[in-house]
Design a protein around this nucleic acid. Structure first.
Lengths: 104, 104
DNA sequence: GCACTTGTTCGATGATGATCGTACTACGAT
DNA sequence: ATCGTAGTACGATCATCATCGAACAAGTGC
């Protein structure tokens, strides 16, 4: 049960551009964001293939969450993350799509 | 005379998103970009009011230039910088406008 | 020539941050 | 209750980088 609790994140009006840009500027985190962009319904952190250990992964997810880039909620033992597309689009229209347009 | 020489910068296809985002993620550099956005014809570095010394300013301008965010050419003793709007828009459509849309 | 302006380069320093291993928590299943 | 799974938290280490001062470079003008 319980089975669904959201983790603390900034409200839309608390999101700062510098934090978002800095969060997106790290290669591993950008990789995470790209993976999330393909799955609107969200995805468990561990299912993203990354060249780092679990603890580093957790660190990056926290950074992205605290910057306001993604939201995370608990489902049982897994943590589902999804992009905060609407909030970002509202605050910085075009930013996310521009970033995702980058060649892979 | 001479009076006009361009400084080395990456070609459009050499620009990497991570570098651009990382460059934009620093507060002072973002301030520079915002200042440049208001002046399409370019502006001398020293004329932007910044809370750092001249050497730090030079460092940030170099970072932005090497990331591909701006171009610089020499005019006499001054160095005029301007945003590489077209290149950025072509590579990451919407990114720059999204960043500049952020509340000031 | 010399002085002045504009800006860069170099080296040092201090802060931030990416990474890891280990220990820990929470949940699910047996 | 015990085990296994998914993930976080902490502390340490190492690299990156923002910042500065001092020295240097290139133009302009007297």
């Amino acid at each position: 049960m319980s089975t669904s609790k959201a983790l603390p994140q900034p409200d839309r009006e608390e999101i700062r551009v510098e934090a978002v840009l800095q969060a997106l500027g790290e290669p591993v985190r950008l990789q995470i964001v790209r993976a999330l962009a393909d799955v609107p319904e969200g995805i468990a952190c561990g299912e993203i293939e990354l060249p780092v250990t679990a603890s580093t992964r957790a660190h990056h997810l926290r950074t992205l969450r605290e910057a306001g880039v993604l939201s995370t909620h608990t489902e049982g033992t897994r943590r589902i993350s999804k992009l905060r597309r609407e909030d970002l689009e509202e605050l910085y229209p075009g930013l996310l799509s521009g970033v995702l347009a980058a060649r892979r």
